[in-house]
Design a protein around this nucleic acid. Structure first.
Length: 544
RNA sequence: UGGGCUAUAGCCAAGCGGUAAGGCAUCGGACUUUGACUCCGAUAUCGGUGGUUCAAGUCCACCUAGCCCAGCCA
């Protein structure tokens, strides 16, 4: 699928046409402190697709300028997710690769009288900053000499001061209506081991300072980010200019992508995992890429979804149906359609010979002949879905089984329900039906129409399986309420039923359409003799 | 009387002065060995008010609503 028209694509076309840029170079700059989720997928896909469209390239750059929050483990996880999505970065880089250059550029700012070492502690700095409605006041250290600033900054690097004791700040304008311009901190002191640079540094650049420099160094042409950075753009440009970067990158912002019934904030996802309310970051209910993968989502479905939602300067909330639709669309023609019974109800075909099994041939996908055919077993005892039978008089339009009605067991025979056998407790034990040999599928029989078509699995060849069915994790979008109170108690339900014999040797992540039940993916918990399937998404249904 | 951003159908979203694309959802109907798929058909005058123009969703003014910003986070 192509990316439809959007404002960033238009900007790129114009920049290329005018000669403002020679090549489109983008970057995806995650901070290695969490698993990627579907929201990140939008940023990844947008950056890679846009560059690809214009014959450019995209870097993966880990923005690791804050060692207190970052972990090398996430570096590998993030790389894996991006590869899984189908993208190959031109370069895999780290913000920490540029610590030396950042330091040199900071010295340049000091020498130009555009940066100073400040002694204010965090609390006082906040007071001096002023508020949204009142201007800030200058730091007492704002007019230190260049020599003193150089000396102090050098001492900061050498570890002479404790965390928080001093900062390096850009000297801009404490009266600016844009708070980001009120002498922002550009270096702070953090004595901690960094996953890449170890103990080499104890001062680390802030995002606002590091990011534009990183973009400039890498020759990024279009630096894409989300809307909350709009107010930072003027600072971004200020650093690129004042640091005299040879290449001038430009920042463009677009809105975040939200999905109904889906909470994507890092904080909540972490809370869910830490409180063991889910089974980990790859729980099939999680909106993480590893979660979606386990659930059964395919990279191409996610790509299609993201591209179909477009790109604008609005923080949008797209309905979950759109994501689900992308998955169905993606799998419809490429997956085998097989029989599984999630809620078994036994049916005995009383006029079928005891002990006899016959094998019936059917297409693996009736919309795609290339997938070939297979055989399924049919015999005297079969399982059907409980929902496909109604005990009593069905409403008008019922297209399934009921006593006295005849339906087709798909690709087999018409069967008619003659008797309902009950357990002592009143529940249904089994159905007694008769079949009509004349109605065999493929025979061309059309003397009468069945009251619907239902699927089945033959009893003696059936393989037991577990089916995990999901609903949204959260039922309440009110962020003020406690997490526990917002959870959907029915978000995970496991059913035990049967699948047809052809699924005996399936492997994790294999995907099927279970006829009339939806798309399923084999779960990682599947081991020999214990099949577990996750329902990725249901089939659409006009049956209410 | 702080600054910034945004406003096209239920949800996304094209549109760049010439008479409202598309997708998802919804509602009809056809077809159907998945109540699936597919196919037909239905559904908006563009936040509001003025103005410029032969012509405005597109330009101008004012208004309204929503979102973002006061980390030594990103």
């Amino acid at each position: 699928m192509d990316m439809s028209s959007n404002f960033i694509k238009t900007i790129m076309e114009e920049d290329l046409a005018s000669g403002k840029v020679k090549e489109i170079i983008t970057r995806f700059p995650p901070e290695p402190n969490a698993y990627l989720h579907i929201g990140h997928a939008r940023a990844i896909i947008t950056n890679f697709e846009l560059a690809k469209m214009f014959g450019g390239k995209t870097n993966l750059r880990f923005d690791d300028t804050n060692p207190v929050k970052e972990d090398a483990m996430f570096v590998e996880a993030i790389k894996g997710d991006i590869e899984w999505l189908g993208y190959h970065p031109a370069n895999v880089l780290f913000g920490s690769d540029y610590f030396e250059e950042s330091y040199e550029r900071a010295i340049m700012l000091i020498k130009k009288g555009l940066a100073y070492v400040c002694d204010l502690n965090a609390e006082d700095m906040s007071k001096y900053r002023g508020t949204l409605n009142t201007r800030g006041t200058d730091s007492p250290n704002r007019n230190r000499s260049v020599e003193e600033n150089l000396k102090l900054f050098s001492e900061m690097r050498d570890g002479k001061y404790n965390d928080g004791e001093k900062t390096l700040r850009a000297k801009i304008d404490m009266a600016s209506p844009n708070i980001n311009m009120r002498d922002p901190v550009i270096y702070r002191i953090i004595h901690i081991n960094h996953h890449n640079t170890g103990n080499k540094w104890c001062i680390y650049p802030m995002y606002d300072f590091a990011h534009p420099l990183q973009d400039a160094i890498e020759g990024i042409s279009h630096s894409l980010c989300s809307l909350e950075y709009v107010d930072h753009r003027v600072l971004y440009d200020w650093f690129v200019e004042k640091c005299e970067m040879p290449h001038i990158p430009h920042q463009y912002e677009f809105g975040r992508l939200n999905i109904t019934n889906t909470i994507m904030s890092k904080r909540y996802l972490k809370q869910l995992v830490d409180a063991k309310l889910v089974k980990g970051y790859d729980d099939p209910r999680m909106p993480t890429l590893v979660g979606l993968r386990r659930r059964g989502y395919t990279p191409s479905a996610i790509r299609h979804f993201v591209l179909s939602t477009g790109l604008s300067r609005i923080n949008s909330t797209v309905s979950n149906e759109m994501l689900e639709n992308s998955l169905r669309d993606d799998l419809r023609l490429v997956n085998k359609r097989v029989n599984a019974i999630l809620n078994p109800l036994k049916v005995v075909i009383t006029n079928y010979p005891v002990g006899e099994i016959e094998y019936l041939e059917l297409p693996n996908n009736n919309e795609n002949e290339a997938l070939g055919t297979r055989t399924i077993a049919f015999g005297r005892e079969v399982y059907i879905e409980k929902d496909d039978f109604i005990d009593g008089t069905p409403e008008k339009g019922w297209k399934r089984l009921a006593k006295g009605l005849e339906v087709r067991l798909m690709h087999a025979y018409f069967v008619k329900c003659e008797d309902i056998i009950y357990n002592p407790d009143g529940s249904i034990k089994e159905l007694h039906c008769t079949y009509d040999p004349e109605t065999k599928s493929g025979s061309g029989f059309n003397a009468r129409k069945p009251n619907g078509n239902i699927h089945f699995v033959e009893e003696s060849t059936a393989i037991p399986a577990k089916f995990n069915l999901f609903e949204p994790l959260m039922v309440d979008s009110d962020a003020d309420r406690k997490l526990e109170d917002r959870l959907n108690p029915n978000s995970w339900k496991t059913l035990e039923g049967f699948v047809e014999a052809s699924l005996k040797d399936t492997l994790p992540e294999e995907k099927f359409q279970f006829v009339r039940n939806g798309y399923f993916s084999v779960d990682y918990d599947t081991v020999k003799g214990n099949l577990v399937f996750n329902r990725t998404v249901e089939l659409k249904s006009s049956y209410k």
